[in-house]
Amino acid sequence: MLMINILGAILIAAIIYWFWLYKPKQIQTDDNAVTIVVDNGVYQPGNIKVAANKQVALTFNRKDSAPCAETVVFPALDISKSLAMGDDNKITLPALKAGEYDFHCQMQMYKGKLIAE
């Protein structure tokens, strides 16, 4: 019984580590343009470094039919855009001040981050 309890605790710790503590690898962009694939519940890449004070050209390629994937939201920038399925959806962001900008799908199940430096 003790073994089972320890096993359960390890499982819980693994869930916390895997889903919450994990940080996606950072991607550097060339000329502030990047294509993000929306598929299988994630934005790929989801952690993107861009140059500050310069427009950012994002292309969202949505392959995921889940309802949440339909809309991408940049709360700090007040941008909300629906993404057409199986298509390249271009979003141009204004020049960003240095800082972190989260983006997510409408229910925040898919999450990504832009880091302007």
Partner: peptide, 16 residues
């Protein structure tokens, strides 16, 4: 199952 596995690989979890 496909959705769940793909999401899991990417450290995400959803209804699937």
């Amino acid at each position: 199952y496909k959705g769940a596995w793909q999401a899991f690989k990417n450290h995400a979890a959803n209804m699937d």
